[in-house]
Every structure is written in C-alpha cells, then in structure tokens.
Simulated assay, not measured.
Amino acid sequence: MEKGRTVIVGAGGFGRELITWAGDAHLAGRLPPLAGLIDDAPGALDGFDYPVGIIGSIADFAPQPDDRLLMAIGTPRVKAAVAGLLGDRGGRFATMIHPTAVIAGSARIGEGTILCPLSLVSADAAVGRLVSVNALSSIGHDVRVGDRSTLSAHVDLTGGVSLAEDVMVGTGAKLLPRVKVGAGATIGAGSVVYRTVGPGRSVYAAPARTLRAAQPDSAAR
C-alpha cells in the first residue's frame, strides 16, 4: 500500500466517477486513500452525496510530497495547462489501473494515465502520459495513444491505430485498423473513422455506404 493520500484534480462528471474507482484501486492496494477533490468551483459537489468533498482549489493547491494526483479533466488542452501548473509546484500524478482493467504484459502505460473499469490494453500497445481511458474502452494491439489524450467510454481503437498528443475521442467512437489521428484532433461520439484525421481537425458521424443493392424478390417481378 502506498503512503500518503490520493487527490482527484477536477470535480466534474469524470471526477465524481473517480471517487468510486479510486476507492476500488485503494482497496486493491494500488493507491493511497482518497482525501478529496480540488476544483476551482467550490460548489461543484453541491447536491451530491459522496464520502469526500472539495478540499481546495486548483489555483491555490500546494501538493504535499506524498500526494498522488489523479487527473479528472477530460479536455486535453485544459488537462495540459492544469498538469503543468501542478507539476511546477511539485505535484506527482498517479497511474491508476482499476482492478477490472485488462492489460497485456507487453503493453506500456505512461505515468499519470487512468484505466477505468473493464478497459482493455492489448498486446504491444503504448499509452502515453496523462491519458484517460474510460470504462469499457478497448485499445487494440500495436496501438499508440499520445500524451494527454482522452478516450471516453465504449471507444474502440482497433489494431495499429495511432493517436498523436492531445486527441479527444467521444463516447462509442470506433477507429478502424491503422488509422492515424493528428495532434489536437477531436473524434465525435459514435463516429466510425476509416481514414487519416489531420492535426486539429474535428470529425463526426458514422458514414454508412451501400455495399450491394438489394435484389428484387422473384415473387415481386
């Protein structure tokens, strides 16, 4: 069991999810006990009933030497700014692997990355620093995920996909084999991506094409 305390950075939806999942990781001996959350909106948890609360603002937080921070901010550019701010103050971001996550022995996971319940990282995949992989998302064999990228729930990165840094992938998106996505791009929820996405581009929707026209039934001729 690690010494110190765990502090969640951000008290939005993902931060609230991490309250439970960080507790699971603590019970599995993978994180120190959860002390609370930091957020610049002091009322972010008003109306919710959780065993921990807001213990300070991001702007004023002074990390202690034994603190382990969990990044609960999804938007990559905001994540980068907050990580830089807290890192300059000596903050250390913990790697959280939920007990139900499945990771191949040949996969590599970067510092500060969060793997949520029932996520999968397959053979020879490489996941960068401060990446968020939400519940039930799958990272296939030989996939590369750049620093600070965010995979929402139910995302499927199939074999050989490559995401550069700071990519945001929406819920339920599927990237077909060997697709490359440039830095700072956004993949909308439910998208099916089958070709390269350039840096900073945003793509949405699931293109459906007719593979074969239906043949008229012989009885209708």
Rank of each mutant, 00 (worst) to 15 (best):
S106C: 10
D24I: 10
K3D: 07
L163Q: 00
L34E: 11
A107L: 03
V167H: 06
P177M: 03
L31Q: 00
D147K: 11
S106V: 14
D46P: 03
E111Q: 13
G13Q: 04
A183C: 08
V133I: 15
V179M: 05
S162D: 12
T20Y: 05
A185H: 12
T150M: 07
P33M: 13
M168T: 14
G110A: 10
A41H: 07
S152W: 00
R195T: 08
G10I: 06
A94K: 01
A25R: 00
L175V: 14
P117M: 02
V197F: 00
P32M: 13
R108E: 07
A25L: 02
A213Q: 00
H141P: 09
H141D: 04
L69T: 05
G13T: 01
V133C: 08
R5P: 02
T150W: 01
K180L: 03
I38R: 08
S137F: 10
T20W: 09
R209S: 02
G159E: 02
G29P: 09
F48G: 06
G128T: 15
V161P: 08
T100H: 01
R89D: 11
S122Y: 12
G36D: 13
A206K: 12
E2K: 09
G13P: 01
R5V: 02
R212A: 14
A94C: 02
D217L: 09
G110E: 10
I187Q: 04
I97Q: 10
L31P: 03
G91V: 03
V197E: 05
S162I: 15
D147L: 12
L130A: 11
N134I: 14
K79Q: 03
S218M: 05
P76C: 04
D88L: 11
T210P: 01
D66M: 08
G87R: 09
Y194K: 11
L31Y: 00
F48Y: 02
P51Y: 04
R108C: 10
C116K: 07
V197K: 01
V121Q: 04
D49C: 02
G47A: 07
S191N: 05
F14I: 15
D217H: 15
S138I: 15
H141Y: 12
M1W: 00
A72H: 07
A28H: 12
L70M: 09
K79F: 01
D46L: 10
A83D: 05
T20L: 12
D88G: 15
D67H: 14
F93D: 12
L118P: 04
R77S: 15
L157R: 09
T186G: 05
T186L: 05
V203H: 07
I54F: 03
T95V: 11
A107Y: 11
D156K: 12
A205W: 08
H154S: 09
T196D: 12
V78F: 03
T100V: 05
G198K: 06
V78H: 07
G36M: 13
S202C: 13
S119Q: 09
A208P: 04
R16L: 08
G74L: 03
G128C: 13
G84R: 11
I97G: 06
R129S: 14
G74C: 12
A59Q: 06
V7W: 00
A208E: 11
L37R: 06
G110N: 12
R16C: 07
T95H: 04
I73R: 04
L86G: 07
D88I: 08
Y194R: 10
P42C: 13
P42A: 01
G105Q: 02
G43E: 05
L176A: 10
R5K: 00
K3S: 15
L37S: 08
G23D: 06
S119C: 06
